[in-house]
């Protein structure tokens, strides 16, 4: 790109890019509640859809109700979603657990912020546990961890087809930096592959729905089916990114926006310090890319895990992969990790 030539490049922030993806994916219903840094998603939805009767919007009285509003719309057959963050994510777990129990295609965009409690309003990677496992009992979810406004667009575009095909609550896990960052985003043509249809029927079939059971064995049978379906789906849906990993002797594992700093660091470590080092980045935290992960980490001297949390990614990695090598963790709860941090970590 040479400076001086006028261009039509328009800047989008992550929230705008996300809404564009959701609209192209066929979403027609949004319910939410103001909470930084997820509020702009709601505002963008209103801005883009308020003139058109086909789209529905509810600003709920709180996040819990917003989640149940979304469930109502899904039962009625609409591609529906919400967006929240931090304490709102905590409140959202109540409706999400109903969506888990009843295998509803609930889609939510989570803009991570520091916690626990009110915490900070802009950034962390501390909502991994909550977003992957925040409900009671044994639920299953699909969670994409994005790193840029471009990826927010890409994965919002994909989330609804994924959710409606496989019927697991599907999340786009980002953070306030991505939500607010303005950059040039490339949009593409997209035709949704799955059409939504009413889940609650009227005259026949699925016209009596509940999420409670009389006996433990009934629940157990239902859960076993969900687990089977989840395992069947996992290999097809899991996504990852590898950067200069093929000839690497050391691997850094990270997710989300931290991967940008790691990529920057890897380039410097390779050219300036002759380190043969690469990145394994799970894009789906759930289902975790186990097969590729195990292949990449085998026979490596050191495995580094870097995250802006106190080990939420590290726990996922260690429980999913068979790591035989030395593990070195860079855990910086609530604070972003820079390329310099990674370089210092590896050089020590």
């Amino acid at each position: 790109m040479i400076g001086g030539q006028l261009s039509n490049k328009i800047l989008y922030n992550g929230s705008e890019a996300a809404i564009k993806g959701c609209l192209q994916a066929g979403a027609t219903f949004f319910a939410g509640y103001p909470i930084t840094p997820g509020t702009e998603i709601m505002e963008q939805w209103v801005k883009k859809t308020s003139e058109n009767q086909k789209y529905r919007f509810i600003q709920a009285e709180d996040e819990t109700s917003a989640g149940f509003n979304v469930i109502g719309a899904i039962l009625a057959g609409k591609k529906a979603f919400t967006a929240t963050a931090g304490p709102g994510n905590t409140l959202m777990q109540d409706p999400i657990s109903m969506a888990e129990a009843m295998r509803l295609p609930f889609v939510a965009i989570i803009m991570q912020r520091g916690g626990p409690s009110t915490g900070t309003v802009i950034f962390s990677q501390q909502e991994v546990n909550l977003t992957c496992h925040g409900g009671n009992g044994e639920g299953h979810r699909i969670v994409y961890s994005t790193s840029t406004p471009q990826e927010l667009y890409n994965y919002c575009l994909k989330a609804f087809d994924i959710a409606w095909k496989w019927r697991f609550p599907t999340f786009i896990l980002a953070d306030g930096y991505q939500a607010k960052q303005e950059s040039q985003v490339v949009f593409k043509k997209y035709i949704p592959r799955i059409n939504s249809k009413p889940i609650l029927k009227y005259n026949h079939g699925n016209n009596n729905l509940r999420n409670c059971y009389n006996f433990e064995t009934e629940l157990a049978l239902n859960l076993e089916k969900n687990i089977r379906d989840y395992n069947l789906m996992s290999k097809k849906v899991c996504e990852y990114e590898l950067y200069k990993a093929s000839d690497a002797s050391e691997i850094i594992i990270t997710h989300g926006i931290t991967s940008l700093s790691v990529i920057e660091a890897i380039d410097i470590l390779r050219t300036k310090f002759n380190k043969k080092i690469g990145l394994f980045r799970p894009i789906t935290l759930a289902p975790f890319p186990i097969e590729v992960g195990n292949k990449v980490i085998s026979n490596k001297t050191n495995i580094y895990i870097a995250e802006s949390s106190n080990g939420q990614l590290a726990s996922l990695v260690k429980s999913n992969l068979n790591i035989r090598s030395t593990i070195v963790e860079l855990l910086k709860p609530a604070v972003p990790i820079s390329a310099e941090d990674i370089i210092n970590l590896v050089r020590k």
Partner: peptide, 9 residues
């Protein structure tokens, strides 16, 4: 951005 640069804010 309109002058042709890549930008991020």
């Amino acid at each position: 951005s309109m002058s042709g640069f890549n930008v991020s804010l």
